[in-house]
């Protein structure tokens, strides 16, 4: 296990949270009803908060590393904002699922549900990580994720069951997103040694619980999951869909246009 592995793993967890938080925040002010605008903005806030914990931890690890092997040279002291605003897409380690465009409300809540069901199981296990920082972040965030999962699951059921139109839209959303769920359980190179040493979560161990939860909710929603469909992957290793570049271009604009400023 190298320093780089743990840094990549922390960034993977942080990037997932930031990118999905950013996507959700695109809805702020544009939700279908005020109460739900507030709810999704809340989830965005929770996720961005999680991302900050991970980036702060990753910067401490990187700043403590030796000069020669230190990633992201050129930044004397790394901060959460350098990690969020000064990396290009190939350095982001998030799953492809979270960078997918919002689409309609149904696609957004289904994306959230797939992710929260995964994050719920992941954090449940990560609480017992041998890395005390990761364990603490997971324990703190699990309360939030429990709510995200309940909220998004209820919406998937509501829309799948609601009207003919909502059902059709949810089928479309499922068609768009299902192929990005496989990657949630494919360990990246940096993840495998960490899982063996009890720092990272062994993804195979949390898959059955995710499958069960997703199966229950989709069934209650009257939606049929696709079997044997090809699964896209690559995000965890820095190979993203085209969507991420635009997201970063927008998010990083000020830091890039006015480098070295305090905000």
């Amino acid at each position: 296990m190298s320093d780089q592995s743990i840094i990549d793993y922390i960034l993977h967890l942080g990037d997932n949270a930031l990118v999905l938080g950013h996507r959700n925040s695109e809805w702020t002010g544009h939700g279908p009803i005020l109460e739900q605008d507030i709810a999704l903005s809340n989830i965005a806030l929770d996720l961005i908060g999680q991302a900050r914990y991970y980036y702060q931890y990753a910067s401490r690890c990187i700043n403590a590393a030796d000069g020669a092997s230190r990633p992201f040279p050129g930044h004397e002291a790394l901060t959460e904002d350098v990690l969020a605003y000064h990396r290009d897409a190939w350095d982001f380690r998030n799953c492809l699922l979270v960078e997918q465009s919002n689409g309609h409300w149904g696609k957004t809540v289904l994306r959230q549900f797939f992710f929260s069901a995964w994050q719920f199981e992941l954090y449940g296990a990560l609480r017992h990580s041998r890395d005390s920082q990761l364990a603490a972040i997971a324990a703190k965030s699990l309360k939030e994720v429990t709510y995200h999962l309940r909220w998004s699951g209820e919406w998937v059921i509501r829309l799948g069951d609601g009207t003919e139109e909502s059902h059709t839209r949810m089928e479309e959303a499922l068609g768009d997103l299902w192929k990005y769920t496989g990657e949630l359980f494919v360990p990246a190179d940096y993840e495998k040694p960490l899982a063996l040493s009890g720092v990272a979560v062994d993804l195979a161990t949390i898959r059955p619980a995710w499958e069960l939860k997703v199966g229950e909710v989709l069934e209650a929603a009257g939606l049929e999951r696709k079997e044997g469909e090809w699964m896209q992957k690559g995000g965890k290793q820095g190979k993203h869909t085209e969507a991420l570049g635009y997201l970063l271009a927008e998010m990083q604009f000020l830091q890039r246009a006015y480098p070295g400023c305090e905000w």
């Binding site: 930031l18 950013h22 925040s25 695109e26 702020t28 002010g29 605008d37 507030i38 903005s41 809340n42 965005a44 806030l45 961005i48 908060g49 991302a51 900050r52 980036y55 959460e80 904002d81 969020a84 605003y85 927008e250 998010m251 604009f253 000020l254 830091q255 400023c261 905000w263």
Partner: peptide, 19 residues
Amino acid sequence: WITRAPTLKRKATLIAKVQ
């Protein structure tokens, strides 16, 4: 400006404000 806020702290604060 939420999606273009210059730092993570500013982004979170702005979301909270609009909320």
